[in-house]
Computed example of a mutant assay.
Amino acid sequence: MRSDRVRLFQTLPHACGYFADRTAQNLVIDPAAPQLDQLYGPALERGFRRAGGHLYYPYCSSCRACTPCRIDVERFTPDRTQKRCLKRNADLTVIESMAGYNAERHHLYEKYLRHRHSGGGMDEADASDFRRFLTAPWSPTLFLEIREGSRLLGVAVTDVCLHGLSAVYTFFEPEETGRSLGTFAILQQVELARRRGLPWVYLGFWIEGHPKMDYKRRFQPMQVRTAEGWRDWNTEKG
């Protein structure tokens, strides 16, 4: 990905989604670039993330809290809590499905957003919002459907790139709290990467000490991206 071939734009300051007293800005790869499908893998390697049709990287003037992170698939072994999660959900079926909108998925997505983001604007997602946020025409996306029999319990939106998977977004039945479906979805993405011989599962950004991001550090060995490149999280913490 060369700077003389790919344009980068910087967004205007906007409200930070993680800290109420901060503003945020992103670097965004030109969304009109004709080769976004080819840029995606190298962009992941450099810490970028997909949201809808945009590849972005947090680039805030006074904050560097968002740290790209990824799971080392070959070295990953579930801890005791994660093994219990797998055992607890042994009755579920995970199906690799084509990405896209349907009424069943949309109903679960709306229900999840109403529970997790009530009053924040995201809980009014219609069909076009679903498509715009979760899919892109150039993106190598599949949906991992998590089912209890015929009942849809969760969807892990997963991008399959040449050298790794990107865990884009997961939504699930909010009433099934005892199943830890978010953790289960990541474990299934790790297993999918292993089956496909892919070395990494990219989890987006980790923020030290933030309660919404703390779960990511439980997937060890995890790597974080620093100014010097990717480093093992344990090594980085020191």
Rank of each mutant, 00 (worst) to 15 (best):
R2N: 15
S3L: 13
R5M: 12
T11L: 08
T11P: 02
H14W: 10
T23R: 10
A24D: 05
A24W: 02
I29Q: 00
P31G: 02
L36W: 00
Q38N: 11
E45R: 14
E45T: 14
E45C: 13
G47V: 02
F48C: 05
F48Q: 03
G52I: 03
H54P: 01
P58S: 06
Y59R: 08
Y59K: 05
C66A: 08
C69N: 02
D72C: 13
D72Y: 06
E74S: 11
F76S: 04
P78E: 12
Q82W: 04
K87E: 10
R88P: 05
A90T: 15
N102I: 12
A103N: 07
A103L: 07
R105G: 06
H106L: 04
H106G: 08
K111E: 12
K111H: 10
K111R: 11
Y112D: 00
H115L: 14
S118K: 10
G121Y: 13
M122R: 06
E124N: 12
D126F: 04
S128T: 15
F130A: 06
R131P: 05
F133E: 03
F133N: 06
A136W: 00
A136M: 05
W138K: 06
S139H: 07
P140C: 09
L144D: 02
E145R: 09
G149D: 06
L152S: 03
V155W: 01
V160T: 09
H163A: 13
S166C: 07
T170D: 01
E175C: 13
G178A: 15
R179N: 11
T183E: 00
F184S: 02
F184N: 01
A185R: 00
A185P: 03
R196M: 11
G197T: 06
G197S: 15
P199Q: 04
P199L: 13
P199M: 07
W200F: 08
F205K: 01
I207E: 02
Y215P: 07
R218Q: 15
Q223G: 09
E228F: 00
N234Y: 06
K237Q: 13
